[in-house]
Design a protein around this nucleic acid. Structure first.
Lengths: 135, 135, 135, 135
DNA sequence: GTGGTCTAGACCACA
DNA sequence: GTGGTCTAGACCACG
């Protein structure tokens, strides 16, 4: 039973809310490699969503290499890290890093303060994870 | 002359990019209370946008109480705007940092690799940043 | 089928006429909580307006908390709208009455002439009013 | 010294605010026939307005026949009631009456309640006037 | 199907 | 000069 919360009226597309939350669950190890995700219909019913919305979220996650489908069986968390090349990974992360840096500059955070913040958030997110056995 | 950057194809509506950037400029004091904003047409031309897009951004900011308009005169920064507190700055940046960490974990970047990337992007962005000579 | 009337050339922006009339319909209960409003395109066609004009009216009503939108589904009346109190109704109408009295005094109409005019207009408007058979 | 209040940011054009308030002052007798109005520049300075705005308000009032100018002397309240024909007066007032009736219908006021309200507002506005000598 | 965004460009109201 | 409104019509995102 996944703990997912969606908010209908906040502008962020529902499928994106799903994608982000599942990404976080995977990143922090709360969803284990080869663990099973709920069937589309079950999740849709549980969250009172249009099944197509869940389908779309799962598809995005599959494209990103984070989950995979076994025909007739179900949907599972990938055990491989990522299907992206090193360069692609770098580009994706550089974009997010840039967002952080720009906002930081505007709010008066210099490089060292940003790094400190990043390290702290990293530890916090990892600490929330249940175990480290998969690493 | 405002330093605003808009990216055309990234999903975030242009008017929202404007709203957020101007919000930040006001919150950080780079736009002073009762300071004048560029006329709609000027900003539109400068950013190669349709004036209506700027109009919409300005209207949202006005509704939010951040700016006000004097009929026939121009657009100005409200004087009673509460700038961000330290805690608010932190919360905003922590959100962005989390996005970076989660994505990094899923793509196989550990803490040190993320920090290295962040430092590098910081330096790159600083170098590209426009000088403040115009002020 | 909503009964909305817009007048093209009277100085009041069309989107504002829409906002006011829909506000009134909601405040008086003619539009029920969680009731569905006509789709933008439908209302635009019905009133011979540009869809964007309707979009703007709906957006203002949404900002005001009177209606909400479900993505991809439609537009609905908020359920927590506080209808007008008797005092509010009275205040609104007193304002309009004052406008009539002031103009009347300046144009040489005494109280009885104004009342006669009001009664006559009332009868005329009631006769022109559409029946409520569609409900 | 006229008691006029203008609000810069409420959407109603400043010149219109002036027109309405002066109309009311005349209708209720607080400005007497042949009484003098402040010179444009004085009123503009007093209210911190662009003189052109005051000029426009005075022009509208002059067109409506409520004030007249003596060249080189000043601006005065008309002693004649109105330059409009009976039909014109009727049309103007019918419009205002319609606004009242329509709003009233929407708010649940029937004909008699509207008439009662109108009579009451009439008395209230006249009572606020200083004297009845001009009648 | 729904609403959301954007552009292009006209015309108006205000100070 | 300023901002405000409206139209026409394209294209996108969402469910």
């Amino acid at each position: 039973m996944l703990h997912l919360t969606i908010s209908q009226g906040d502008g962020v597309p529902i499928y994106l809310q799903l994608v982000r939350q599942i990404k976080t669950l995977i990143a922090t190890g709360r969803l284990k490699p080869d663990g099973e995700l709920p069937p589309v219909r079950v999740l849709a019913q549980q969250l009172v969503l249009n099944p197509n919305t869940v389908v779309r979220a799962y598809r995005e996650l599959e494209v990103a290499g984070l989950i995979y489908k076994k025909r007739g069986a179900g949907t599972y968390v990938s055990s491989e890290v990522t299907p992206y090349t090193d360069a692609e990974c770098r580009r994706i992360l550089a974009e997010r890093a840039d967002a952080l840096v720009v906002e930081g500059l505007n709010l008066g955070y210099d490089e060292d303060k940003l790094v400190a913040l990043l390290r702290e958030r990293h530890k916090t997110l990892r600490r929330d994870a249940p175990d480290e056995e998969g690493a």
